[in-house]
Amino acid sequence: MDDKEVLGRINGLVDEEHKLRQQLSQGTLTAEEEHARLKELEEALDQCWDLLRRRRAARETGSDPDAEQAHSTSEVENYLQ
């Protein structure tokens, strides 16, 4: 994935987050359903932002950004632990 594709994925996930909140306010989605899907979206967003940061860092240091791959969700979510 190049930077443009990663940013496109981020925008798609944010759009989905907005739709979920709208569905909740319209009553077409339960709070539990919204919460479960939001957790998945947040993890996917963290994964995308991590990849984008690592691609940018690789570019700044003269490395190949295309060599960077997305880390697993569990790895990204546990960076600070």
Score class of each variant (00 low, 15 high):
K19T: 06
S74L: 09
L20S: 01
V6S: 03
L29T: 05
A36V: 04
R9K: 04
H71E: 07
Y79H: 08
R59G: 06
E34L: 09
T28S: 11
E43C: 15
E32M: 00
L29P: 09
L80N: 06
S72Y: 03
Q81I: 11
R9A: 03
R9Y: 00
Q81C: 06
H35Y: 05
T30I: 01
S63W: 10
K19L: 12
E5Y: 06
E33R: 07
L29N: 04
R54I: 01
L20F: 02
Q69E: 05
Q81L: 10
V6I: 14
L29H: 08
R9I: 10
H35T: 11
E16L: 14
K4T: 10
E68Q: 12
R56F: 13
T61D: 05
N78I: 13
N78G: 11
R37G: 14
G62S: 02
Q22H: 11
D50N: 04
H35A: 14
Q81D: 11
D64R: 07
Q23S: 13
V76D: 02
Q23D: 14
G12Q: 02
A36G: 03
S63M: 06
Q26T: 14
L45C: 07
Q69P: 01
L29E: 05
R21G: 09
A58F: 01
L29V: 00
S72D: 08
D66H: 04
T61G: 08
Q23G: 12
A67M: 04
L38A: 00
A58H: 01
E33G: 10
V76M: 08
E68M: 04
E43D: 12
T73R: 13
T30E: 06
R55K: 13
E40N: 13
D46G: 09
G8E: 01
E17H: 03
Q26S: 12
R21M: 13
D2P: 10
K19F: 10
P65W: 00
R59V: 06
R55P: 13
Y79N: 11
E42F: 11
R55F: 03
S25G: 03
T61M: 09
E77C: 08
G8K: 03
E42T: 10
R54T: 01
L29W: 07
M1V: 13
E68R: 00
A36H: 15
T73F: 10
A70N: 03
E42K: 12
V76Q: 00
R54C: 04
Q47Y: 12
A31R: 14
L52S: 09
H18A: 15
L29K: 10
G27V: 08
C48T: 08
S74P: 00
A57V: 08
D50E: 12
D64E: 03
Q47I: 04
R37V: 12
V14T: 10
L52R: 12
G62F: 01
A67Q: 08
S74T: 11
E40D: 12
Q47N: 15
L41M: 05
L45M: 14
D3Y: 13
A44C: 08
S72G: 04
